[in-house]
């Protein structure tokens, strides 16, 4: 049976009577096809192929697939890295003035920040966050102070990425999301995942969800942190500031908390996502909602690092 590189031999495989032990042989066929089989396995495979039309066809299928994958894989343009580096160097130049201001006048070295990272990179990170909205920065700063509260109620904070990556609560569980809602973002959300449908798991929604609503305009905000007590949530939220420097208004209701304004949460999303690309922060549509919920909801989900 001969095939050109582009012909898929699957058709031949379909026509052949199935080998009763194909599931056992198949992993060995891959090893054989990749040249990874030892001598004993090679001899066994060759012996089996001599008498099994199905596995012979499967081997052809595997060979074709591996060959097709390699031969049809697209190549990036040659100047791709050059383009990326050009953009980075432009950014570097734009940040040059800021970095220069951070140079130690005596030694000429870049002053380290409190985490030991050269200040220039930290300055750029903060600049990116400020590139969104000032309110976003306020919220990020709020989160910086949030986790130490969650963890122990005291102690020095590590870098923001450490904090966001390890939003661990008192009971040792991981915080797995910050829910955010708003009519303005309704059209911006398309993915249909229910509340609590955390990426990679199927935990049901709202049993340990803390609900926060904005009474002024009816647009809901949900802050969902597993294991977070109501008292602690209120303590944390009361520490957050709006873009104007005013504290968020937090009022406890029968089924959650009313918080305003919503704008601080909305504007945080892009800045958080840009600052922490590895955390998988997403906005998704909520399919299910608590009884008190009166509008479509979305949340920013922070997946475990």
């Amino acid at each position: 049976m001969k095939h050109t590189q582009q012909q898929n031999p699957t058709t031949e495989l379909r026509r052949t009577q199935r080998c009763p032990r194909s599931s056992e042989w198949e992993p060995l066929l891959y090893d054989y096809a990749e040249g990874l089989a030892d001598e004993q396995t090679r001899a066994a495979v060759e012996g089996h192929l001599a008498s099994c039309a199905y596995c012979t066809a499967a081997m052809e299928d595997i060979r074709w697939m591996i060959s097709a994958l390699k031969s049809t894989a697209p190549e990036p343009r040659e100047d791709l890295t050059k383009k990326v580096m050009a953009r980075i160097r432009t950014e570097e130049e734009e940040n040059g003035r800021v970095i220069a201001e951070a140079l130690d006048a005596r030694t000429g070295r870049i002053l380290p920040d409190r985490t030991g990272t050269p200040l220039g990179r930290s300055v750029r990170r903060v600049s990116r966050m400020l590139g969104g909205v000032a309110a976003a920065l306020v919220l990020v700063i709020g989160l910086v102070y949030l986790v130490p509260l969650l963890r122990s109620g005291s102690g020095a904070a590590s870098s923001p990425s450490d904090i966001l990556g390890e939003m661990q609560t008192d009971d040792g569980s991981f915080a797995d999301g910050v829910f955010v809602g708003g009519r303005d973002e309704t059209e911006a959300v398309t993915d249909a995942v229910g509340i609590g449908a955390v990426q990679g798991s199927k935990e049901p929604a709202v049993s340990d969800t803390v609900l926060i609503e904005t009474p002024a305009d009816g647009m809901p905000v949900i802050l969902r942190i597993k294991g977070l007590s109501a008292e602690r949530l209120q303590a944390v939220l009361s520490g957050l500031l709006t873009a104007d420097g005013a504290p968020l208004v937090v009022t406890q209701t029968d089924d959650g908390y009313l918080v305003s304004p919503l704008s601080a949460f909305e504007s945080a999303h892009e800045a958080l996502r840009a600052a922490y690309p590895e955390l998988g922060i997403e906005i998704v549509r909520a399919q299910t909602r608590p009884a008190s919920y009166t509008d479509d909801a979305f949340y920013i989900q922070i997946s475990e690092p």
Binding site: V84, T117, S122, R125, S161, D162, A274, E278
Partner: peptide, 24 residues
């Protein structure tokens, strides 16, 4: 889509660059 993939590749690599200081 190849054009989108090229744009995305740049975006991904820039995100990596920006995220490196927070990479543990």
């Amino acid at each position: 889509h190849e054009e989108d993939a090229a744009d995305l590749t740049q975006e991904i690599l820039l995100r990596v660059w920006h995220g490196l200081p927070s990479f543990r």
